[in-house]
Amino acid sequence: MAEFEPKIVSFLCNWCSYGAADLAGVGRLEYPPNIRVIRIPCTGRMSPKFFLSALNEGADAVWVSG
């Protein structure tokens, strides 16, 4: 069996964490390719249903940052 590769859905605030992820790219900081980013205008936009739904749909983890 292949090694477990988690699928992580992340919700990043446009103004901070999304920009930070951009900057990580500019700095060529390498990290595992398991994250898929959904851009939200603010973590205030985050509804509990979003991460419940992501988990329900098969994500192994949900990361909200902002």
Partner: peptide, 8 residues
């Protein structure tokens, strides 16, 4: 930024 630059 979120892909090619960080998963080379």
């Amino acid at each position: 930024n979120h892909d090619s630059w960080v998963h080379k």
